[in-house]
Write a protein that binds this DNA or RNA. Structure first.
Lengths: 137, 137
DNA sequence: GACTAAATGCACTACCGTTGCATAAACTTA
DNA sequence: TAAGTTTATGCAACGGTAGTGCATTTAGTC
């Protein structure tokens, strides 16, 4: 049994062929990818399967969803020990308007917010748009 | 000529009946509204017209777009002197998961970000999800 | 009033997210 | 190992939103 299989089982996910492939794909990517991008990466992949794979991955805490403002939701692997649910753990995302890629800036945590009276926060989403390092050369 | 008509002309927008209505509607709303919401507010409105009206409003700096993570873009009137383009002027938005309304927290500006080397920011979008004051009673 | 430019209405496309249902694969247990 | 059960997959389809092309109307201009 490979390391990935072990990892998935530990997360209570049956390590099917498709799931392993999706995991590997996400692992090679430094950036957050959308459903369509993954679909194009494997030409014989079924859209629904990928959709549900990502959904289970998210439920089990393997990936987290990112809404970078492009209209399509993107996914990225959680880091070891990442606890996306917990407010303190939220990092910011960077969307490059040139190459259209979305990067997780995991080192850049979001400071707790000051909200008006009677507002309670559950989730914070911070996306910075601009030009990324690769495109800025 | 009414104040609204004057305002629109000053922004280089022809004050047609539809546009005045849309402006008035947005003005009464404290929250950011989506295209469909506006469409339902005027039953004889044409979706495309509203879409284009909002688009011109945005281009001319009358409204600003908000992506609150619900998947549908919302619009809100810019305040007097609001300069949505300028990075310093960006405020945060609050999306209530209970009543599904998005509020502009114009008093809560976003602090400038520290980005990794060679990343340049053009735009910042910060959305906090949770329960708003009205739903927290 | 004739001409020109802009705004509107209608039809239609494309894309994404999502669900229902039938089938196939993988686990369980006798 | 065969039967039965759960889980994953594949296919088809729906619904909503953004967006575009084109014809028509409306509003400004001369």
């Amino acid at each position: 049994m490979t390391a990935i299989e072990q990892f998935l089982e530990q997360k209570n996910i049956r390590p099917t062929a498709m799931r392993i492939l999706v995991y590997q794909f996400l692992d090679t990517k430094e950036i957050a990818v959308g459903l369509t991008a993954i679909e194009h990466a494997f030409d014989k992949a079924e859209r629904t399967t990928l959709y549900r794979t990502l959904k289970t991955f998210e439920e089990k805490g393997v990936v987290h969803q990112i809404d970078d403002g492009t209209g399509t939701t993107k996914y990225a692997l959680c880091e070891a020990g990442c606890n996306c649910d917990v407010e303190q753990d939220l990092h910011l995302h960077f969307h490059c308007t040139k190459c259209n890629e979305t990067t997780c800036l995991t080192d850049h945590k979001i400071q707790p917010m000051n909200l008006p009276d009677n507002f309670t926060a559950e989730d914070v989403n911070l996306v910075v748009k601009g030009i990324c390092d690769k495109c800025n050369d």
